Simulated assay, not measured.
Amino acid sequence: MPGRLLETPFDGPLAERLAAPPAEGLNLFWLGQAGFVIDIAGRRIVIDPYLSDSLGEKYRGTPREHIRMMPPPIEPGAIAHIDLVCCTHAHTDHMDPGTLPALLAANPTAKLLAPRAMREQAIQRSGGAEARLVLVDAGEAIDLGRGLSVTATRAAHETLETDAEGHHRFLGYCFGTNDLALWHSGDCIPFDGLVAEVRKLKPQVALLPVNGRQPELSLNGVPGNFTLVEAVDVARAIRAETLVAHHYGLFDFNTIDPSEIDGMASGERALQVMRAREAIAFQWPPT
């Protein structure tokens, strides 16, 4: 399906947009950091939502305070019609105990998808939603109905990590229909085999983190991600048509200047490069 994502700004709160059921086609709404609402094939999926100040409370008064640069664009309980909530791994800005319980309470039929290696963390962070938990490992696919499936891919949050049973601690997810696929890499850096693994899934749209990595952060327990250049290279290599850059603008010690993304976008021709932004609906195909 040829085409590119179309940015459509909207006025008013995000909650007004997400009170309505999901439409057909693809619509994306950024929640900040790596979080998105993905409306695809008439399903509403929320991935890696961080809509609280859990990390600000945890690190208050420490040398590296996690002070939000942007407020949450919506309250967790205000997102309606959710079919699936996905967490790529167990870091708090991706599996948030300040977000998941309210999100699931407001959507009692929604399932929670998480890495099999992170089962206990998912139960705890969700407020005990074990009966609603769907566990997955890299390479596994799940049928979501209406011709939509999700396939888990490996992710290296600086390194590939597995538990004692060999299940991957960090995952990405590719959501696909017969004519459209979207890949959210999770927190990830380049590693051998990544491109070949994802290229088979034929994603037209790639949601990739671009905050990079810094040795001083990595040595202090804050692993990094793709640099912007690496994200562009990966998107090209998997033959995606559009890259949506994210995982920036939340904490000042672990971000990049948005103008860098805009500059990269202006210089690209074959690949559409855009940055996740608030109060924007990203639509495919353009209408």
Rank of each mutant, 00 (worst) to 15 (best):
L100Q: 11
L180F: 01
D179F: 06
P190Y: 05
A138S: 14
A155M: 03
G186M: 03
G186D: 03
A117H: 10
A155C: 08
A102W: 05
Q121N: 12
A102Y: 04
H94G: 10
Q121K: 12
L103R: 07
D137G: 11
H184T: 08
A155R: 02
L160R: 12
A131T: 15
H167K: 14
A155L: 05
P108M: 01
I142K: 10
K111I: 01
S149F: 06
I142Q: 09
W183F: 15
G193T: 05
G193R: 01
G147Y: 05
T109Y: 09
F175K: 05
L194C: 14
L133C: 09
T99F: 08
R125Q: 12
R116Y: 10
P97D: 11
R116M: 10
D187I: 14
V134R: 15
I123Q: 05
G128Y: 00
H167F: 13
T109K: 14
G139P: 09
H167G: 04
T99A: 07
L144F: 12
T162I: 15
E165H: 13
G147E: 07
S185A: 15
I189W: 00
D96F: 06
A155Q: 02
G166L: 05
L182H: 04
L112E: 04
R132N: 00
R146K: 14
P101L: 04
G128Q: 01
G139C: 10
R119T: 14
L182M: 11
R132Q: 08
A155K: 07
Y173M: 09
E140H: 02
H168E: 03
E158G: 00
W183M: 10
D163Q: 00
S149L: 06
